[in-house]
Computed example of a mutant assay.
Amino acid sequence: MLPSSLLTKLNQASEGGGYLGSLLMGLTFSLTSFACVGPFVGTLLAASVQGDKLQPILGMAFFATGLATPFFVLALFPSYLKKLPRSGVWMMRVKVVMAFLILAAMLKYLSNVDAVWQLDILTRERFLAGWMILFAAPAAYLLGWLRLEGIKPEQEVTIPRLLLGVFLLSFSLSLWPGMSGASLGELDAYVPLAKRTSGGGGGGGYAALPWKKNDLAGALAQAKAEGKQVFVNFTGYACTNCHWMKANMFPLPEIAAALGKYILVELYTDGTDADSEANQKVQES
């Protein structure tokens, strides 16, 4: 990481206006935001080495355009630099709130690693408990219940602070039903799924369906013995779309009834074990 003093000097130099000021502002922005754009750019670079050409080209074109447009406009009209809002107490509040939100995002990425490696540390209950804390904390801060830098005890709660604080607190409390395995709707795509016992059961919805995990041979043998067809679901431990399907589509009564006519098997393709490698070959065949 670069020293904060260096970034501060670059930021102060960028306030001078003109073409040099715009360039320095762009340099400062690039240095401070590199960690934020890394996941996006990294995904595009990974796609480029996997043979996909169009997606990386379009992705980088849109990314570069979006990143460069503000600085291009400011370079054409340097006087607008003086009209930009100055940092102050409000900026400290933004930093505090964003710090908690970034920690929540970090927990999400850690849950993906936990799922792929099958460590079973960040279970659904632990993950949701962490998110409840990380969203309730900035709410308490904005509402004046949690004393941190940026808000003095004698300051009144403004309408924007009240609205944002209530929103974050409401979101935190809305996660509570998910602790007991209840559906969280669209949000289920981003949180760990409820655990199920082998062969189905152990909860409702997707967990109640008798899926065989990474056992295509066993599913084929059972299907032959029972005279049924096999329904193969290629899925992933960290697949957002897969989680959404499991939480919101497969549990629908009409879908569950249709799936009941098949022998169900789910093949995970994004793990680090031999089963995932074998499932990838089956998917590609």
Rank of each mutant, 00 (worst) to 15 (best):
D275S: 14
A257K: 15
G203Y: 00
S170E: 04
L101F: 07
M60H: 05
V113T: 12
W117N: 05
M245N: 04
A129N: 06
C239Q: 06
V89S: 12
F100I: 03
A35W: 08
T240E: 10
L7G: 14
V94Y: 10
E186C: 07
F231V: 03
F171H: 03
Y109S: 14
L169I: 10
F62L: 13
G204V: 10
G38T: 11
L193S: 05
K9D: 14
L267Y: 08
P253S: 14
G165N: 05
L74E: 06
L31I: 14
V265H: 01
K9P: 05
L146A: 10
W176R: 11
S4N: 11
E15V: 01
V116A: 05
A182F: 13
K95P: 01
R124D: 04
S198R: 12
R161E: 15
S170R: 06
V157L: 03
E149Q: 09
G130K: 00
V89K: 09
L142F: 07
L119R: 12
E266S: 06
P138V: 00
G17T: 10
F127I: 00
E254I: 02
Q280N: 14
Q55T: 15
L164R: 06
G236T: 12
L107G: 10
G205E: 07
V89Q: 13
S87G: 15
V97L: 11
T158E: 01
M91C: 11
A99S: 15
V157N: 12
W176P: 03
L44R: 02
S4G: 09
A221W: 00
L24A: 09
I121M: 10
F250E: 07
F62V: 13
L264T: 03
L162M: 13
T8F: 05
K261D: 07
P210C: 13
